[in-house]
Every structure is written in structure tokens, then in C-alpha cells.
Amino acid sequence: MSCNILFAGFGGQGILFAGKFVAYKGLLENKQVSWLPSYGPEMRGGTANCSVIVSDEPIGSPIVSNPDVLVAMNLPSLDRYENEVVSGGKIFVDSTLISRKVERTDVDVYYIPATEIANEKGISTLANMIITGKLLKEVPSLGFDGIDAPLAKVVSARHQDLLEVNKTALKLGYDY
């Protein structure tokens, strides 16, 4: 069983961070994992995406070109990758930033106004984790249990005070 996930958006949205969290969660559950970022030279803006594979088997290519799961956090990402998702796959859409609907009919689509929820709750930088909360709920092979340990791994040592708010964001997505 292998789950190939593509997180895509623009730089500064925490695309790489969300991917890292999911990869670490798999690692701590003794699964095979890989995380591969792809981004431009900009710190903010520009396109950013990352390939995450969580698998029971050793991983061959770490590049996800046909994802089982696509997390699209801006319109160019949805335009670019919608047709690459495997049939029967899942697409998670930040519906605050993407006003159009997914055209495919052979995939499950989840619309979450992640950026709007994040702004309302005063955690505007955590739309990435809200949408990831929903992802963990809807992709059974990932699951929501055991989020604490991987969070502690990916939140840097000097920002450990942000652990709780990350957890809150994940739960907001889970409950949406």
C-alpha cells in the first residue's frame, strides 16, 4: 500500500512544511517515506510543491507525477495538476483561494476554505495545516491519530511554543 501525495501552492504558504509533517508522521509509524521539494529561488511567492510518498514497501522514484492525493492551495496548482491525479484519487482544494470547481468526475473532491478559516481564527499562516487536518481525516492510510510526535519534529526547536496552535489548525481541518 503506497500513498503518493502532491502538495502544491505558492512559496510562503507552508507547502513544504505540511509535506514534511505528513512524511514524519509516516516515518514515526514505521512506514517507508520520502519527501522531495521543488521550488524556485524565491523565499515567498513563486510556485512551491512537494512530493510525499508514504508506503509499506521500499520507495522507488520519490517523484510524484500522478498523485493519489493532490492538495491544491492556489489556482495555478489546480490547473497544472488536476488532470495528473489518478482515477479514484482525492483532491483537496483551498476554496478561499480557488474559486473554480474541479472538473474531473472520477475523483473525490474536498473543498475547504482553509485560508478563510485561518484568518477568522487569527492563525493566518496555518491554512496549510487546516487543509492537512482534513487530509488526514479523509485518507484512511494516513489517519489523524498520533499527530503530536511528528509535529514536535517538524516545528523547529525555537518555535516549540507554536505546537499547540498547529494542533488547533489540524483539528479545525479535521472537524470541518
Partner: peptide
């Protein structure tokens, strides 16, 4: 660049 940037156990 891929080998440098990717994370694996």
C-alpha cells in the same frame, strides 16, 4: 539536486 534536497529515513 534531487538527492540533495529530498528527505528519507
Amino acid at each position: 539536486g534531487t538527492m540533495g534536497q529530498m528527505m528519507e529515513p
